[in-house]
Design a protein around this nucleic acid. Structure first.
Lengths: 342, 342
DNA sequence: CTGAAAGCGCTAACAC
DNA sequence: GTGTTAGCGCTTTCAG
């Protein structure tokens, strides 16, 4: 492939010498070659090829203050989600978009407080141009840390805090949780259901709160009592469903804040001999495919474009990095996907 | 926290000025402070604190030629496995061990040939000190690429190629697939089973081949015909089981090359009305928990310490980076886990 | 034990 | 167009 002079790697200098030009010219060619005579470009390219030259990253970063890498900060809780199609898809969107911007993805995996110092040092040390973080729990110390350092960051999911009046708005990407929830409930009511229950997600996550709010938007206040607390897991969905049934045996519809809980609810419904959707109509949220399509009956649910949201996070960050001020949060639309459960 | 002089970040120079010492001294303190008078150390530490100084990574790398980051190269096929607890656990082991070495994990996610150039440029550009790669398929071009660049690399899983006579041995970490398979078959025979079938994994993966070899080790040649080809998926396990049953309705034991295929096989066995383990004893491989314990009956299987293997990969790489030559492959032991299926 | 000085490899003004 | 010249922020001999 090249005279991989196995010792030290060739530098710009070496290429310049070989091509018989100055370092500056080589640098120009390597960086696009704009404004360099064609003949020289060719000569330099040839030298680069022959020497197997690859620009030294650190040196370049030192002067440009850019390093073409973006950190994705994930905290332990999200990691559980690794096996979760949800996170994988978001990460995939991020990775793809990053690649198209020729940027690298650095995974910062935070397992506990003992990792914080390392993370801060890393983010602050200029290893990356920016960061992508997820704001799952209100009490997660991470967002605060990231804000402490002055590193451009875009969040996945609406953060639970509100920026101070003087601070710029926190850029984030989230789907329209509230609107999606409204659609779900409206759909259920359009089906003629009048006792619509809700299985809510954890109260410290904005996505859960927003979905709950959407549910309430669509119902007269007194019906709102039909809410049971879940934790976004299959198991918790089953428990919540049991509780709901005990409280209101005559309920005829359920909107679960995610598909996992919906599938748990479905299990209980079946065990109790209730038919879905005939006796109880059921709508989930996420359209997490392996789950939503595999249940019996398949779930009617609210789809969010997870991969697209990942890509969007990157685009937002890039805009932020290009000094573009006024980067506003982005809320992506959801879509009701009708299957058999409602 | 500090006088985060919001403009540019403080440099070594600034700290030196504030502490009234030279840059060299600050550098020494920042890097451990060996051989610096206690009083000065304190002064410098104070200045660092007050200024919120964080060393510039690029500058440091430029001179030390080390950057405290390690790339994990994963190709698309492995990514499927992301939703697979297996890969997550390995990655977790890697991440943990890396953290304990104060190194960062850079995720290189290769989706196709179009990414190769970028990867090579990245690995060659000195962004990372070394790389961790997985050698799943024989025809995967990635290992070759990685070898092309001169970047220290440790593989997960025994690579399918053999190093040239002059080349140093390829360092890798793998579990004792062959030995584990032997244990599985021996266990089945100890149970008195005499017609032991095998559901093999893809022929282009060394783990599958090694397990197949282990199976053959334990059986007289003529019984060896009881092998059906699978693809490490639940579905393929079911298909293979069907085929096996058609060929030898009287088989009394099955060793599947992984738990996923074992669960597929189990499904078919049950559908055919065969009792496990009474009629057919079944052993899997991996001890992938969510699967192995959830089946009915739970799977007897061969456990490998996936997280430990991840950690080991990092340790091996670190030794490689420390210039230690003669880094040999590591094969970790497996253990038969008895549950109810055999 | 501490400081001065010389780069690491590259880019970006600024001349020519 | 192309070359010259300063650094980017840090570590590391080498003197003192």
């Amino acid at each position: 492939m090249s005279e991989a002079t196995s010792g030290t790697r060739p530098t710009l200098e070496a290429v310049a010498a070989r091509a018989g030009v100055s370092r500056a010219t080589v640098s120009r060619v390597v960086n696009g070659g704009a404004g360099v005579r064609e003949a020289l470009v060719l000569k330099v390219r040839k030298a680069v090829e022959e020497l197997g030259y690859i620009p030294n990253h650190a040196a370049r970063t030192l002067v440009t203050r850019r390093n073409g890498a973006v950190a994705v900060v994930i905290a332990e809780p999200e990691l559980r989600i690794f096996s979760d199609p949800f996170f994988e898809r978001q990460l995939r969107g991020i990775s793809r978009e990053l690649a198209s911007h020729d940027a690298q993805l650095v995974l910062l995996w935070v397992e506990g407080p003992e990792d914080h110092e390392r993370i801060v040092r890393y983010l602050g040390g200029g290893h990356v141009d920016g960061a992508l973080a997820f704001s799952l729990h209100d009490d997660d110390p991470l967002p605060g840390l990231v804000r402490g350092i002055q590193v451009p960051t875009v969040f996945g999911g609406r953060p639970g805090w509100t920026a101070g009046a003087d601070e710029p708005a926190t850029p984030y990407v989230d789907c329209d949780n509230r609107g999606g929830a409204r659609d779900a409930v409206r759909h259920l009511r359009a089906l003629g259901r009048s006792r619509v229950a809700h299985i809510a997600g954890p109260a410290d996550q904005t996505s859960a709160l927003d979905r709950l709010a959407g549910y309430r938007d669509e119902l007269p206040y007194e019906e709102t009592a039909l809410v049971a607390q879940g934790a976004f897991t299959e198991e918790s969905g089953a428990r919540a469903m049991t509780e709901l049934l005990d409280r209101r045996p005559d309920l005829d519809a359920v909107f679960a804040a995610n598909d996992l809980m919906a599938s748990g609810a479905l299990r209980v419904l079946r065990e109790r001999g209730l038919r879905v959707p005939d006796d109880v109509a059921l709508v989930g949220f996420d359209d997490m495919l392996p789950i939503a399509e595999a249940t019996e009956p398949p779930l009617t649910t609210v789809r969010q474009d997870v991969e697209g949201m990942g890509r969007l996070m990157v685009r937002l960050l890039m805009r932020l990095l290009d000094g573009g001020p006024g980067v506003e949060p982005v809320v992506t639309p959801t879509a009701l996907v009708r299957r058999a459960s409602a």
